[in-house]
Design a protein around this nucleic acid. Sequence first.
DNA 1: AATTTAGTGAACCAGTTGGTTCACTATAGG
DNA 2: CCTATAGTGAACCAACTGGTTCACTAAATT
Lengths: 197, 197
Amino acid sequence: MEASAEVSAPVASRRRGEALRRAIFDAVIEQLGSVGYAKLSTNRVAAAAGTGKAALYRRWSNKEELVRDALLDLLPEPPRVDLSASLRDGLLAQLTYLNSTLFDSKGAAFQAFAAAAADQPSELRAFLHETVSVPCQERIAELLRLHTAVPDKDRPLIAAAGPAMLMYHCMSGSLKSTDTQIEAVVDGLLLPLCRER
Amino acid sequence: MEASAEVSAPVASRRRGEALRRAIFDAVIEQLGSVGYAKLSTNRVAAAAGTGKAALYRRWSNKEELVRDALLDLLPEPPRVDLSASLRDGLLAQLTYLNSTLFDSKGAAFQAFAAAAADQPSELRAFLHETVSVPCQERIAELLRLHTAVPDKDRPLIAAAGPAMLMYHCMSGSLKSTDTQIEAVVDGLLLPLCRER
DNA sequence: AATTTAGTGAACCAGTTGGTTCACTATAGG
DNA sequence: CCTATAGTGAACCAACTGGTTCACTAAATT
C-alpha cells in the first residue's frame, strides 16, 4: 500500500536553492558563449534558465554581479606548481590551464575578458585579471625561479608572454589554441628566452 | 564699398560634404574612446557631431559600416621598414606605431578591437586584424629576415610576440604602454629570441 | 534666378533593456 | 496542518536603440 502511494506521488516541478542557482549560472555561461557579453541580457538569461527575472534579482542586485558570480563559479583554480615536473611540462600545464579556462564553454570567459577590456573602467576586467591572468603568471614566474637562471627583474615580462600569446591568438580571430600551438609557444618562445640568460 | 559688403556677408552655418564627414568621424572616434564600442550609439554620434541621424544614414547604411569607415580613416599606415635602421630601432618603430595606433584617441581603436573580439563572428575583427595586426607582424617578420638568422618557420611566432604583449598589457587593465615598456619588450623579449638562433 | 542637392530637426516605429512589483502557489520547515 | 519562504509568470516602467520618414531650407549647381 505504501509502495503504491510512492509511485503515484507528484514529481517536484519547481527548482529551488542550489538547483536553480546552477541552472542560472549555466544559462549565463551559455549566453556569454553564444551571444557574447554585450548582448547578454537578463531577459535571455532568465529564459534560458527556465525562470523569470524576479528570481535573478532575488539573488543578485544587478547584471554585472550575476555575471561575475557565474564566472567565479566557472573558473577553475590554476594548477599548482608540480615540483617534480620539468620546466617544459610545468609551462605546458599552466598554458593549457589558461587556454581551457578562457576558451572552454564556447569561450565564455574570453568573451567576458574582451568585453571587459572594451569597457572602461571595469571592475569585471580587474576581477578577471586577478582571478585568471595574475595567478597564471605567478605560477609561470615560480617555475622560472625554480628551474632557470632568469633574474628577478626579467621574470614578469617572460611570465606574461605565454598568456599574451594565447589571448592575442584569439583576438586575431582564431579559436582556442591547439596543443600543438601551445607547445610552439613554450618551445619556440618561452624556453629559448630562459636559455638566453 | 566692396570691402564693406564682404565684412557683412553671412557666415555659412551648415557644414556640407567633407566638413560634415570629418565631424562625424571625429565624433565616432571620440565616442569609441569615451563610452566604448558596445555603448556607442548613432544617437550619440549624431549629437556629438552636431548633426542628426538622417545625415548619418544618408552616407552609411548601418552603424557598423560607419564605425568601420571612421576607423579606416583613423588608422595610419604602418611605417615602412627602414633598410638603414638597426634591428632594434626597426622593432621599436613598429611597436611604437602599433602602440600609438591602438591607444591614441583615448584607445578608440583598441576599444573597437576588444569589442570585436567579444563579438563572434565579426567582420570588424577581421578588418582590424588585417588592417592593423597583420601589417605590423609582416614588417616585424621582414626585419627579422633582414637582420637575423631566425628560420622562416619561427618568424611568425616571434613576430606576433610584440603585438601580443602590447595588447595583453591593456587587457590587463593598464593603459598605453610607455616607451620604456616597449623597449623592455624589444630588449627583454624580441632581441633575445633572435639571438637564440 | 531657378532648380537640385544635401543638411536639419523632429517625429515616428517596433523592439529591447535593466530593474520593479504583484498575486498566486509550490515547497520546506516547524 | 499551518506558516514562512522562495519560485513563477506576468505586467509594468522609463529609457534607449537602429533605422525611417518628412517638411523645411541652406547651399551648390545650372
